[in-house]
């Protein structure tokens, strides 16, 4: 089976339902509904209802403490579109996704290729790169705030040892987002690396042996055998990471706070501040709908790209 890759492609996932053997599926029975009932209740109550309620909220004036104050039509959306902080948040989020997703794919693939052997050394290195993924976001940000700390931080100390001037990534408008990208890569590179390693194990050995007989060079083998075989996994990693990184929040809030000059505030932080700092739930709900839309567009785009390559 191809597991999550199919899961992420709705068309592919829906297909086997019809294909499964008749005996396996059996006669329709209301009793069988019990299998899915707990999940369906949860999904309706905790996904469908909030989605509907959120959509309704986005057209309301709803104060967190003062309560509902009537409908405002499209006002929340109109205000949102002219809000420069929000525009910046959308830009930052897109930039962040654009920087992290290729980095996760590239670095994850590189590590997987480099460590895909039976050597003990490679096993140790694999655990090093995966190990940081089990730390919680606050431990990670605690560590990195100390790394980035001016004057007494690890980065400054190391640069100083090489006689280089200190760079303050967190406080520099052009570098603040990059500082969060680095933290995010450091934190969860383990997942893409592992997915690629697993996919590499799936490539039949015979293909490589055939290539060796053909005297194909390493670069050519990589280019014409390994990478094409990994196409689905590359798409899988890209989709998973895009879903995760569009929702970036904790690292930014705890490292840069969104600054300087709004250079690193992501959409989720904007939602948090509009709702929980400024009490404007309707406005926050409208911002949530925009995030939803952005992610949907991005996911569709990636799937379309994946399909096109599959065909080509």
């Amino acid at each position: 089976m191809s597991g999550a890759a199919d899961v992420l492609a709705p068309g592919a996932a829906a297909r086997p339902v019809a294909a499964a053997s008749a005996a396996g599926v059996g006669r329709p029975s209301l009793l069988n509904l019990l299998f899915v009932l707990p999940y369906v209740m949860l999904m309706l109550g905790l996904v469908a209802v909030p989605v509907g309620f959120g959509l309704w909220l986005s057209f309301q004036d709803y104060d967190m403490l003062g309560g509902w104050n009537g409908s405002v039509g499209l006002a929340n959306y109109v205000n949102l579109l002219s809000d420069r902080i929000f525009q910046g948040a959308v830009r930052n989020t897109l930039l962040f996704v654009a920087m992290t997703v290729p980095a996760f794919v590239g670095l994850g693939l590189f590590l997987a290729l480099a460590l895909n052997d039976g050597l003990r050394r490679s096993a140790v290195l694999r655990s090093v790169f995966f190990g940081s993924s089990v730390l919680s976001v606050t431990v990670v940000t605690l560590i990195w705030r100390l790394v980035y700390m001016p004057e007494r931080g690890l980065l400054g100390t190391v640069l100083g040892a090489f006689g280089l001037p200190e760079v303050n990534l967190v406080a520099d408008e052009r570098l603040a987002l990059l500082s969060v990208v680095i933290v995010t890569l450091w934190w969860i590179i383990g997942l893409p690396m592992t997915l690629f390693l697993a996919a590499l194990q799936q490539i039949p050995r015979e293909i490589y042996e055939a290539a060796a007989l053909d005297n194909a060079g390493r670069a050519r083998t990589l280019w014409s055998i390994t990478l094409p075989s990994l196409k689905r996994t590359i798409l899988l990693v890209a989709v998973i990471e895009a879903i995760l990184q569009f929702q970036i929040f904790g690292q930014v809030l705890l490292i840069t706070g969104g600054g300087p000059n709004n250079a690193s505030r992501p959409v989720v932080q904007f939602i948090y501040e509009a709702g929980f700092r400024d009490w404007q739930l309707g406005f926050a709900a409208a911002a949530s709908q925009v995030l939803f839309l952005l992610m949907l567009l991005a996911a569709l785009g990636q799937l379309w790209l994946g399909r096109r390559q599959d065909r080509g």
Partner: peptide, 20 residues
């Protein structure tokens, strides 16, 4: 919204200091 003003004005000043 005095707290909102404090945060907002302060953020702009941080931009003046750190981001020129």
């Amino acid at each position: 919204r005095q707290f909102g003003f404090q945060a907002m004005i302060g953020e702009e000043i941080v931009s003046v200091i750190n981001a020129g």
